[in-house]
């Protein structure tokens, strides 16, 4: 007989005991551990999700903040650029004004220098012309230039038209000691010449004309007679003016180049 019923009963009992032992020492502890771990993992997952949500929220907040900062930065940059542009315009304008002022000053200085040079040239030319003329006249006519000037004035008086002569005569007649006729010359006339002029006037118009002799350097080797608003004059100023223009042209030529259209 292969089946021993005592053994069958014993094995069935053994099996039931083993079921209880396994349940007590294996399944329950293991299942509890698994459940506990799953619960912990679920809690950790939930916590992670909560943290993730919080992180996402914070990230959104930071992104919003970053956007605002970016916008503020862009506005500040634009404002700064605008201010810099305005400042640049202002500085350029200032520099331009300073440059213009400096240019004007320089031009003024140049003009002053040119004027001084011209005046010096005029004086030098006047002196030279006068010296040349004096020497030439002295050589040619054995007479001084002063004599020649007096003669020139006398000749001019003689060559006056009738109407001018009448007007001059009326003017001369109105002279007195308080309001004499004035003879101006660039230099001091010698007594002989003064006498000659006085004599000539007396001869031509009438005696007793009161004359006063003055020196006026601006006449530039000229002589003039002024009485009651009438004037008879001769001067080498015209010649000097031509000379001055020629000199001016020479002076200007280096600083003011000729226009291209005039170039040969």
């Amino acid at each position: 007989m292969l089946v021993d019923w005592f053994t069958v009963v014993a094995q069935a009992l053994n099996f039931l005991v083993l079921v209880w032992l396994m349940k007590r020492f294996l399944y329950q502890p293991i299942l509890r551990a698994i459940d506990e771990r799953e619960r912990r993992i679920a809690a950790q997952l939930a916590q992670a999700e909560a943290m993730q949500a919080e992180a996402a929220e914070q990230r959104a907040g930071y992104q919003r903040l970053t956007g605002e900062l970016e916008q503020q930065r862009a506005e500040a940059l634009a404002q700064a650029a605008q201010q810099a542009s305005a400042e640049r315009e202002r500085l350029i304008g200032q520099a331009r004004a300073a440059a213009d002022a400096w240019t004007a000053l320089r031009q003024q200085a140049l003009q002053n220098e040119a004027r001084d040079l011209q005046q010096a040239l005029v004086r030098r030319a006047q002196e030279q012309v006068f010296a040349i003329a004096r020497k030439a006249l002295a050589d040619l006519a054995s007479a001084s230039l002063e004599e020649r000037l007096a003669e020139v004035l006398t000749r001019h008086l003689r060559e006056l038209g009738a109407e001018a002569q009448a007007q001059l005569a009326a003017a001369l007649r109105s002279t007195s000691a308080a309001l004499p006729a004035v003879v101006r010359s660039a230099f001091e006339l010698p007594a002989a010449q003064r006498a000659a002029i006085q004599r000539s006037l007396d001869d031509r118009f009438e005696a007793g004309i009161v004359l006063r002799f003055e020196t006026a350097p601006q006449l530039v080797c000229g002589i003039e007679l002024t009485a009651g608003g009438q004037k008879v004059a001769w001067s080498i100023a015209d010649y000097l003016t031509s000379l001055q223009q020629a000199v001016d042209e020479l002076v200007r030529r280096p600083t003011e180049p000729a226009p291209l259209t005039q170039a040969p």
Binding site: T7, A10, Q11, N14, V17, L18, L21, M22, F25, L26, P29, I30, R32, A33, E36, R37, R40
Partner: peptide, 25 residues
């Protein structure tokens, strides 16, 4: 049969007890 069964029961229970004594979650 019964002796080997008891041996198996002892083995299984001891092994289970040894492992589940220090369970970690």
């Amino acid at each position: 049969t019964i002796a080997f069964t008891w041996g198996l029961m002892l083995l299984l229970t001891t092994a289970a007890r040894l492992v589940t004594r220090r369970l970690s979650a």
